[in-house]
Design a protein around this nucleic acid. Structure first.
Ligand SMILES: Nc1ccn([C@H]2C[C@H](O)[C@@H](COP(=O)(O)OP(=O)(O)OP(=O)(O)O)O2)c(=O)n1
Ligand SMILES: [Mg+2]
Length: 1039
DNA sequence: ATCCTCCCCTAC
DNA sequence: TAAGGTAGGGGAGGAT
């Protein structure tokens, strides 16, 4: 195959290298990324620089202030409200669910297995679909190696979409040289994708760097560096007795407590150490800290009253004798007999007991069957409960939502500081003009560590890292989530493998996560900052920007560092965590300033000093320039570390390196002239919702894939509903073990070196439904059809999101008719038609339909070759032309009937005529387009609020589709593939806040079971008013 | 030109 | 053992 990739030139260079690198071409790109490891030395530099910053830059460093030329005041538009955030009822009809779901799944399963039955033919046929120009079929050839191994040679680089650049030869040489430098084995800044320095030994970062240090045999790591080990043990023991004891070997006596884990709170009898041994000896787990969702029980002797008040949700306090008695009994006993109640408050305890027993069983820890088992329905939950990245991602999103809601309400959070402090701050400087723009960047210092160290004074200023690793294995492949500044001085960095961190810093103390506390602290800091101003932008769980321009002006504060110190003080008091504040006139300057402020300080880049300031800034610190871009920069211009060096380059020169957008951005950034975009302080509408699992995926059977997809679908449904969005498109991302990567990854159950494949499809009707998402994902999965055992990761992204909130629709109705009551005139279709509407999101579907291309329907002969390819709604992009004339006429006919109060012979005749036409139409096998046409008519009836008509049409259609004498057999299946979509639309309507005969829909929901009987007895439904659709279909119906 | 899909990169 | 998620920006190259 030929590659259209303009980067092909560079491939040639690489090819000359292939002697050294037994790397197949697919992974060449990645290995190159690893090879260019000046990143390491560069970061090492930064690391050491940080030391000086810490020591030499006193807190409150202020570069002199001077000019205040800018008169352009940052106006923030608080009115930029997202209407979608407004409240609206969002109930779900639980009982509608069951049966249709199964239908959808059954359908999907069928199509899935069919797809697998004849993979080769499928593959060839797929070519004509041409829906995948980028992902060449050969890629699959690559994966299905056992069939066609010779193909490997001609494979193009499917993953290497590069900016079209011709790398100078000489730079290439530099690149290569570096490749063999064993120096600075820091993996911390290597992006996750750079996992595979494939050419050398193995697939994973860790294995590459550590190959000389460890030997791996049968999954067992044999360590070499025992001195480090010894030191670490010794220090850990001093610092944390329990932890050190952990490494003692113990005899496993039984499996009685398998699946249970405990956290010991305070003094108990037997004491914590004994409990730990007991737990371990009997198959249980001992946790040094309570971990929400993971720790089964908390063991304590009594709970102080104060403590009861802040019991973590679901935390179960029991007495220690649960353990001893369970062991004695040889089975885990019911925890409820061992609950601890607050003294003298039996009542409350019983209430709690009741709540607990009714709500949920004690959290069975995943280890019962190993969460890697896809059959575990709590698969995702258990994984998430331990994933720090999931935690910080969702927490960041939560904080963004929190801020968005505050802006919407326009209310500050409750003041948590004396008002006069602000006034005092600016009191004496009323005459002095304040800065035109003052932006704060607040970031907690080594967030996770700070939280952990709060209650452990002895570890303050010590080398500490937060990780899953308990330190029992010296060369742990676990990652350091966050490390203290003392540890950073040793060269430890966030994201580094524990093994490497211990190598650099043997005295490192490892502490476990405290997820619950991160959530709390995160909320606290946002509550604090939001009490000052709503001009605030959430970046992550521990980091945000605040626009202090208005506040400074209001209180006449000319020295923002005083304000910053004040804020830091409040944060420290409330959370007991240190925060640093960077101050500048733009977010960029504030952010860069924070680097100098850390740890636990303030740094202000004043306008007159900002040019000077920028000169010394590190290029790597510019936001947007990561590992890969630094590599590219170096390969073009050699080592460039400071912004002053970067300033020597023209914008034009940077474009080939970074691409036009980034080049412009970086060009301005390195001069400090980058202005914040107009909407920087505005709430951003979320564009995607996704769920990724790229850990622990080792499947044997395709059913397990389906099971995972089902879980992902459910999770996405939850997230979509939570964010009040529905998905218009679905993207499936698969991580597949690279052909050259070993089956055993270096990180236990990690994904190792992988190739990724993505497939997207658009939904004809946007949805929140997990079963639809799942079935679509499986269809996409079938398109890739990788070796099940080589699957290493699955991610699903919902895009083309639509707000599911009806608020805007409702307000339109209110404006027109007042009070949101249904207008009687609206029932009259003729009058109704006269009413012109703003486009509502109901109609966005139609907009999208118009935009989408119409895919050519394969000729019938072509279709017949397939085993039996029943058209599916998403096979087709929506057509403008509806091809179900009989159905439309029937609809018209029913609409007419629903309006009239008398029987009309003429209408009867018309109805029969329509039915005949429809029958005629249904005699042909369903095509993609005709199935879609049916769907569209149904949807439009629903969208138009024609419930009665819809019912009639639906019922009629269902009836006909089941009758194989009047209709082609495939229509039955085709019709049922539509049901979930129709159901989804009908449920959407339930949310419409105008009077709605819910019972009708409810009844309808129960009848879409696919069985023959139809309960769609008209229970006197009324047509409801819904703002008129402008769609082509609807116009056809109304005509 | 502008859109869409399939990537890659970045940040926490 | 280990828990490598998630959202956004953006480029290449094809389709329209
Ligand atoms: N690779 C990473 C990077 C960060 N985090 C988590 C742990 C961090 O504590 C938190 C915040 O990230 P920061 O980049 O703000 O790093 P720290 O707060 O730890 O240090 P500092 O902000 O002082 O540089 O995110 C993580 O789990 N894994
Ligand atoms: Mg931080």
């Amino acid at each position: 195959m030929l590659s259209p990739d303009p980067f092909a030139d560079c491939q040639d260079h690489d090819n000359s290298f292939e002697n050294f690198l037994p790397t197949p071409s697919t992974s060449r790109r990645r290995s190159e990324a690893i090879v260019l490891s000046e990143e390491d030395s560069l970061d090492g530099l930064i690391g050491s620089e940080q030391v000086t910053v810490i020591e030499n830059v006193p807190n409150n460093t202020i570069l002199k202030e001077g000019e205040e030329d800018d008169s352009g005041d940052e106006r923030v538009n608080l009115d930029d409200t997202i209407t979608r955030m407004l409240e609206s009822s969002d109930e779900e009809e639980a009982d509608i669910e069951e049966e249709p779901q199964n239908d959808a799944l059954a359908n999907l399963l069928r199509s899935f297995t069919e797809g697998r039955r004849a993979p080769t033919e499928e593959k060839e046929q797929e070519e004509e679909e041409k829906d995948d120009p980028n992902m060449s079929i050969d890629v699959f050839g690559d994966l299905n190696q056992e069939e066609e191994p010779e193909k490997e040679e001609e494979i193009v680089l499917p993953n290497s979409r590069m900016i079209p650049v011709h790398l100078p030869n000489q730079k290439e040489a530099i690149t290569r040289k570096r490749r063999f430098e064993p120096s600075e084995p820091s993996t911390s800044t290597a992006p996750p994708g750079a996992d595979g320095p494939v050419g050398i030994v193995s697939s994973d970062t860790g294995e590459y760097w550590n190959q000389p240090k460890t030997i791996t045999v049968h999954g067992q790591n044999f360590e070499i560096n025992s001195f480090n080990d010894y030191m670490r043990m010794k220090i850990t023991k001093l610092n944390h007795q329990v932890n050190s004891e952990k490494s003692k070997p113990y005899e496993k006596v039984s499996e009685t407590l398998k699946g249970y884990s405990v956290f010991v709170n305070g003094y108990t009898e037997p004491p914590a150490l004994v409990i730990r041994d007991l737990m371990m000896a009997h198959g249980g787990e001992y946790h040094c800290y309570y971990q929400h969702g993971i720790t089964t029980y908390t063991i304590a002797s009594s709970i102080a009253t104060a403590k009861v008040n802040r019991i973590r949700e679901k935390e179960i306090f029991i007495r220690a004798d649960w353990i001893t008695e369970s062991i004695a009994a040889g089975k885990p006993l019911d925890y409820r007999d061992f609950l601890i109640y607050e003294k003298g408050s039996q009542e409350k305890g019983q209430m709690q007991q009741f709540l607990r027993s009714s709500n949920d069983k004690p959290i069975e820890t995943s280890s019962t069957s190993g969460f890697l088992d896809a059959r575990n329905p709590n698969f995702i939950r258990d994984y998430y409960a331990r994933s720090r990245l999931h935690l910080i991602s969702t927490l960041a999103q939560d904080m963004k939502d929190f801020v968005a809601n505050l802006k919407l309400e326009g209310k500050l959070t409750e003041k948590c500081f004396p008002e006069n402090e602000l006034a005092e701050m600016g009191g004496n400087s009323l005459g002095i003009e304040t800065q035109a723009s003052t932006v704060f960047h607040v970031d907690l210092d080594c967030f996770f560590v700070s939280v952990a160290v709060r209650d452990r004074k002895e570890l303050r200023d010590k080398e500490v890292a937060i990780t899953h690793s308990k330190g029992t294995i010296s060369n742990s492949m676990s990652e350091v989530a966050s490390c203290s500044y003392a540890a950073r001085n040793c060269g430890v960095k966030n994201g580094m493998l524990v093994r490497d961190a211990l190598q650099k810093c043997p005295q490192l103390t490892l502490l476990p996560y405290q997820f619950d506390d991160y959530i709390q602290v995160s909320r606290q800091i946002y509550e604090i900052l939001a009490s000052y101003t709503l001009d605030l932008r959430a970046v992550s769980c521990d980091e945000m920007y605040i626009n202090m321009s208005n506040l400074c002006e209001k209180y006449g504060i000319s020295d923002p560092t005083a304000l910053a110190e004040h804020i830091r003080k409040v944060i420290r008091e409330k959370t007991r965590c240190p925060a640093s504040v960077g101050i500048g006139s733009t977010s960029l300057l504030a952010r860069l300033a924070t680097r100098h402020a850390k740890p636990d300080g303030v740094f202000w880049v004043t306008e007159d000093k900002k040019n000077e300031f920028m000169l010394e800034e590190k290029v790597r610190d510019l936001p947007g320039l990561g590992y890969e871009m630094m590599n590219r920069l170096t390969s073009f211009f050699g080592e460039i570390t400071t912004c002053s060096q970067l300033q020597q380059r023209t914008e034009r020169e940077l474009i080939p390196v970074f691409g036009p957008k980034l080049a412009t951005k970086v060009f301005n950034q390195c001069r400090g002239t980058e202005e914040d975009p107009e909407d920087f302080w505005k709430t951003h509408v979320r564009k995607s919702v996704s769920c990724d699992i790229n850990y622990g995926i080792r499947f044997k059977k395709k059913e397990e894939v389906l099971q995972l997809m089902t879980a992902i679908g459910a999770e996405l449904e939850r997230k979509l509903i939570d964010s009040k969005m529905s998905a218009g498109s679905i993207t499936l991302k698969l991580m597949i073990r690279s052909a050259d990567a070993p089956v055993q990854t270096s990180k236990f159950m990690g994904h190792g070196h992988c190739d990724t494949f993505t497939k997207t499809c658009n939904l004809s009707v946007s949805t929140t439904k997990g079963d639809i998402l799942t079935s679509e994902c499986m269809r996409l999965y079938a398109k890739v059809s990788p070796n099940t055992e080589d699957l290493r990761g699955v991610g699903v992204t919902c895009g083309k999101l639509k707000s599911k909130l009806r608020k805007d629709a409702a307000s339109v109705v209110q404006e027109m008719f007042g009070k949101g009551k249904r207008d009687p005139k609206a029932d009259d279709p003729i009058q109704k038609k006269a009413i012109q509407e703003e486009p509502l999101d109901l109609e966005e579907d139609d907009d999208r339909h118009m935009r989408n291309k119409v895919i050519n329907i394969p000729s019938t002969s072509n279709q017949n070759q397939k085993i039996r390819n029943i058209p599916h709604p998403t096979d087709v992009r929506i057509s403008n032309e509806i091809t179900v004339p009989g159905l439309i006429k029937l609809s018209k006919c029913y609409i007419k009937k629903s309006v009239k109060t008398y029987e009309d012979v003429e209408d009867e005749e018309l109805e029969e005529k329509c039915l005949a036409e429809l029958e005629n139409f249904l005699q042909d096998a369903p095509t993609k387009q005709s199935v879609l046409g049916v769907l569209e008519v149904m949807e439009e009836l629903l969208n138009a609020g024609k419930l009665l008509t819809f019912q009639s049409v639906f019922r009629k259609f269902e009836e006909m589709s089941m009758n194989s004498t009047i209709c082609h057999v495939d229509w039955f299946a085709a019709f049922h593939s539509l049901v979930p979509y129709i159901k989804e639309t009908s449920e959407r309507l339930l949310e419409f806040p105008v009077d709605l005969p819910q019972n009708v829909i409810g009844k309808f929901g129960n009848t879409t079971t696919g069985t023959s009987e139809s309960h769609l007895k008209p229970t006197a439904p009324q047509e409801i008013f819904v703002p008129e659709s402008t769609s082509h279909t609807y116009n056809q119906i109304c005509e």
